[in-house]
Design a protein around this nucleic acid. Structure first.
Length: 305
DNA sequence: CCCGATTCCTGTAGGC
DNA sequence: TGCCTACAGGAATCGG
């Protein structure tokens, strides 16, 4: 039995990929929807790029959160005034805290929220319990945060305009057809091809290796030399890996949100990622590693053709 | 256009 | 033990 696992970098460091962002969106929806952002505090001006602080405040502060969702690895939070767009990068965390004071290093932005119904909360004792502070922490600062005013066409936004389909929002057949057609004549390695957000979103370095292992396709194969039948298997493998990780990542995320973020992410059951030299779980041969486009790539030489 | 390499950043691991 | 280097990742950008 082959079971995909939540993503870490092999040392237990939590890496937000599509499944983790999806779980984050679900958790925030559960906890925050209908609540109101009362403040956005910036502890620095830029992450990967400058954050438009006024635009972000204008989009969020003073109106109920009416929608929280995910597109690709972006988390979106919408009020009637606008939409904030957040990317956790590689090391980003969005932690729910009781207080407005940073408790971890590399806390860059703090969203203060008055949760739904908080006006009726008592003033004493747990009077502040319904207020919650979302701490955006990101040591490596690969994250991004921006916002757009209401009415903006998000599909035309620079961060979204070139994105391919959501792998879990289309059928395996549709995804396979799309990948196969887009790959005709392409010499790029199939691993780089499926990691390209213009082709399909949400497949990062870890899940690319894992999907190709499940599909039995070597990562270095030219995308244009993968057959339609193989793209059928690959599309289903991508969906299987991501869907299973959403389940597993969800569990991981609850620990993550309510503790320090690393709990539960050490016990990994990845098939090839980070398992160089260890035995393949299918054929007991050695898992091999190569570097491609400066990224570690893992595969089984016997199981993948 | 296509494709591979490089860049951003910091914490951690491993070599000596 | 401490210093140094390599490496991790998404996505933009550069150059051939």
């Amino acid at each position: 039995m082959i079971t995909p696992a939540p993503a870490t970098d092999g040392r237990g460091f939590f890496m937000p990929e599509l499944p983790e962002v999806e779980c984050l969106a679900r958790a925030l929806r559960e906890e925050m929807l209908g609540g109101q952002v009362t403040s956005v505090t910036f502890l620095r001006k830029d992450l990967r790029e400058a954050m438009p602080m006024d635009v972000i405040r204008a989009a969020l502060v003073g109106a109920p959160l009416r929608r929280v969702w995910r597109r690709s690895k972006y988390l979106l939070m919408e009020t009637e005034y606008g939409t904030a767009i957040l990317h956790l990068g590689m090391s980003g965390q969005l932690l729910s805290m009781d207080g407005p004071t940073p408790v971890k290093t590399h806390t860059h932005v703090i969203f203060g929220l008055k949760r739904k119904g908080s006006s009726a909360a008592p003033q004493n004792d747990d009077g502040g319990a319904r207020n919650v502070y979302l701490h955006f922490i990101d040591p490596r600062r690969f994250g991004r945060l921006t916002a757009v005013p209401a009415g903006t066409d998000l599909s035309a936004h620079p961060w979204f305009k070139d994105l391919g389909p959501e792998p879990l929002d289309v059928t395996g057949e549709a995804l396979a057809n799309h990948l196969w057609q887009a790959s005709r004549g392409r010499s790029v390695a199939v691993k780089a091809f499926i990691m390209n957000g213009a082709m399909v979103v949400g497949v990062g370095n870890i899940y690319a290796s894992e999907s190709l292992f499940l599909a039995g396709i070597r990562p270095a194969r030219a995308a244009g030399r993968v057959t339609r039948v193989e793209y059928g298997v690959l599309a289903e493998s991508i969906q299987k890996v991501l869907a299973a990780a959403i389940g597993a990542g969800g569990t991981s995320f609850r620990d993550y949100l309510h503790s320090d973020g690393s709990e539960g992410s050490y016990a990994l059951q990845l098939n090839v990622y980070g398992r160089t030299g260890q035995v393949c779980r299918k054929c007991l041969g050695p898992v091999r590693e190569m570097r491609h486009s400066n990224r570690a790539t893992f595969f089984c030489g016997a199981c993948q053709k």
